[in-house]
Simulated assay, not measured.
Amino acid sequence: MNVAAGSATVVHRGQPVRIAVRTPSHGVCLAEVRYSDGATQDSGVKSPRAGSVSWTFRAPTNATLGAARWTVRCGVTWQRSGAWRAAALKGGDVPSAAPVVMIEKEGYSQRPDSYSTGSAVSYGLILKNTSTKEDAKDVYVLINFASANGELIGTVTKSVKLVSAGGTYALGDSVQMRTQVPGTKLEVTVKVTAHEPTKATPLPHFANVRIEPSQTDTGFVGEVDGEIVNDTSKQTLTLASISIVLLDATGKIVGGGTGISFSPLPSGSRMVFLAQTGFSAVGLDQAVTPLVSVEPTYQSG
């Protein structure tokens, strides 16, 4: 299915769709598709060739039905947009295919350094696997921070081992910028490098999770504490890599961070965890709700 600027058409769930535009811009271009529930698919950046640029997306197999809007931005000011209608596949369910992982939410806080010309950024993303049949594995995430003039001021890459079918993953962390120029937009590229039919995966639960103030930096978040509970596996939990996203009172993402637990946790037991990395740019009055995801390692015993 081809979609050109100014056209409107129907795209069925699971169907590949190509967005192509002509542009006078010589800057790099980025395409985004936004579905009616707010979920987005972002392309990688491309440079126009002979005044043309295109991308191919695959509509998620459970994309929200109804209007979907696409936007292409090139350089600082050039932009084109259009729409299609997301529809159910004719003839029944979509055969199993590579899952699509979308960005359900994104956000960050940036704080200028007091000791240098740089700044600290605490960020968070909610990754959503739109497939109900395939687990997304080894998900590569490229995050660019862009200024108002379109110039990149920072880049970070992350890898998520598993986003389960129909599930979400709260990806939070921080990055140190070499500038105090404010970021105005995230450009996120997600690539699923492996997948397999969904299967039950034990994950520990979290309880009594709370946001704590910094003891040395008044007015900012210092850490996120709580309890990790090994109640879904008969094996000992030997390592837990914890990822946290912070929301404000309206549900907007204001940052994120990480923690790690090395102490063995036998089945049926619980212990305190401390996540103390990545939150220093987040104002304490802004952070209200922590979302926690984990990558566990188990060992028999």
Rank of each mutant, 00 (worst) to 15 (best):
D93S: 07
P95Q: 00
P95S: 03
P95H: 00
P95N: 05
A97D: 06
A97H: 09
A97S: 05
A98L: 12
A98N: 08
P99N: 13
V101R: 12
V101P: 07
V101L: 14
V101S: 13
K105L: 14
K105W: 08
Y108H: 08
S109L: 09
P112V: 13
P112M: 10
D113R: 11
Y115Q: 03
Y115R: 10
S116C: 02
G118Q: 11
G118N: 03
V121I: 13
S122H: 04
Y123G: 12
Y123T: 14
G124Y: 11
G124M: 05
L125G: 01
L125V: 04
I126K: 12
I126M: 12
L127G: 12
N129W: 10
N129Y: 15
T130L: 13
T130W: 13
S131H: 15
T132K: 12
T132E: 09
K133E: 10
K133I: 09
E134Q: 08
E134G: 03
E134M: 15
D135R: 01
A136P: 02
A136R: 02
D138Y: 14
D138K: 10
V139E: 00
Y140S: 15
Y140C: 04
L142G: 02
L142F: 07
I143P: 05
F145Q: 07
F145A: 00
A148M: 11
N149H: 00
N149S: 11
L152R: 07
G154A: 06
T155N: 00
T155C: 01
T155R: 11
V156M: 03
V156E: 02
T157W: 04
K158D: 00
K161N: 01
L162V: 08
S164W: 08
S164V: 05
A165H: 01
A165I: 08
G166K: 07
G166Y: 07
G167N: 09
G167V: 01
T168L: 07
T168Q: 14
T168P: 04
Y169D: 07
A170W: 05
A170V: 01
L171N: 08
S174T: 09
V175A: 09
M177S: 09
R178C: 02
T179C: 07
T179Y: 07
T179N: 02
Q180K: 14
G183Y: 06
L186T: 06
L186K: 08
E187V: 08
V188M: 15
V188R: 15
T189S: 14
V190G: 14
V190Q: 15
V190A: 11
K191H: 10
V192N: 04
H195K: 14
E196I: 10
E196R: 09
T198M: 15
T201H: 14
F206I: 13
F206C: 05
F206Q: 02
A207I: 11
V209R: 12
R210S: 06
I211F: 00
P213V: 01
S214R: 00
S214N: 04
Q215A: 13
T216N: 08
T216L: 09
T216R: 12
G219V: 03
G219D: 00
G219E: 06
E223R: 15
E223D: 12
V224S: 08
D225R: 12
D225M: 02
G226V: 00
G226R: 02
E227I: 02
N230W: 06
N230Y: 15
D231K: 13
T232P: 01
S233P: 15
S233Q: 13
K234C: 09
K234G: 10
K234V: 15
T236N: 10
